[in-house]
Amino acid sequence: MNGGPLGSFPPPHPGTAAAGGPPVHPVNPFAPPGPGGTVPPPPLAPHGPGQIPYGYPGGYGYPSQPHYGGGAPGPYGWPGGAGDSNGMGIAGMVLGIVSAVGFCMWPLAVVLGILGITFGAVGRGKARRGEASNPGQALAGIICGSVGIVLAIGLGVLLIVQP
């Protein structure tokens, strides 16, 4: 043990800059090779250079793409045509939720609930025929629209019948 100011550290190795010897220059791994040395070529992929990885669309890039969507396969193999008419189910769900949440505005909530049920039913039919991919959202529009109508009518009756 060394009782010096460094505590229990061993003395520096002779020949290092800390021991007063010549400074040690570490080897730079990024330096070009010395005389007579050559750099090996970079490694190649198993199937050769320039291969496009799986899942990227081939032939649908900017220069050769005749149209921008609607049937052309998208990235990662997702078809571009599926789910093109999800608007009815989404509209039914949004209107149903607004009807159920805003039932205190009971005349408006009844109208929005009827529209939510209507759009939800149309969206559910499109999903059943395979034209849309959101049958759950359309069903949520039907359910929330029905709940909004029941709550709004109940509140309206309560306000009208109240003495």
Rank of each mutant, 00 (worst) to 15 (best):
A109D: 00
M1L: 06
P46K: 12
R129Q: 12
D84Q: 13
P63Y: 08
W78D: 06
P163Q: 12
P12L: 06
P63E: 11
P75S: 15
A127T: 09
V150E: 06
A100I: 00
G58T: 10
V122T: 07
N134E: 10
R128V: 08
Y68P: 01
A17G: 07
A121Q: 05
N86R: 10
G156Q: 00
G3R: 13
G36P: 02
I90G: 01
P135W: 02
P40W: 03
P32H: 09
Y62G: 08
A138I: 07
L115D: 12
M1A: 15
L6Y: 02
P163F: 04
N2L: 04
S8Y: 01
I97H: 03
G37W: 00
L6H: 07
G136K: 10
S99I: 01
L159T: 03
N86A: 11
A132G: 07
P63L: 15
G37M: 04
I90N: 04
Y60A: 15
P63H: 10
A18E: 14
A132T: 05
P53D: 10
M105R: 01
G15S: 09
M1C: 08
P66D: 11
A19S: 15
P33G: 15
P46H: 09
V94C: 08
N134R: 03
V157C: 06
Q162H: 08
P49K: 08
F119A: 15
I160R: 06
T38N: 09
H25Q: 14
G7W: 01
C104W: 08
A138H: 02
C104H: 09
M88A: 15
G3Y: 09
G61Y: 02
N2R: 08
Q137N: 12
A82E: 13
P49L: 11
H67L: 14
R124G: 11
G61L: 08
N2S: 09
Y56W: 07
G69F: 06
G55R: 08
P12D: 06
S146K: 00
M1R: 05
G20D: 04
G70M: 11
V24S: 04
G21R: 05
